[in-house]
Amino acid sequence: MYSLLKPCKTSAAYEAIPREHLNLDLDQSEEILKNVCTIVTNAGILLIVNDRCEVSIHKDGRLILKTDSQEIASDQAGRIAAWLEGTTAIRKHQQGRSSGMTKSDRGR
């Protein structure tokens, strides 16, 4: 689900970018994730959970992993992906992130 893990510009966290364009239902994600990790807050546009590290989950599937350990960040991104993959919380757009398609194209 995640293809790119890169340090944030401030080096205080890692950012995981989804391989495909995603649209996450954060309320459904919260329902699923509350069984496996701690929900810090659901701000509607952003869900924050705590597991091996604190993670901000954005609606577009992007993760901000609050750790300076790449190993923990990578493992945590994999765990989030495994918990959400195949559930109704996650909707994938048909084309990949690098396709250059417009927003309206992706919505079709």
Binding site: C8, T10, A12
Partner: peptide
């Protein structure tokens, strides 16, 4: 020094 920017 490292510090996370506001994520919201």
């Amino acid at each position: 020094l490292p510090g996370l920017c506001c994520t919201i």
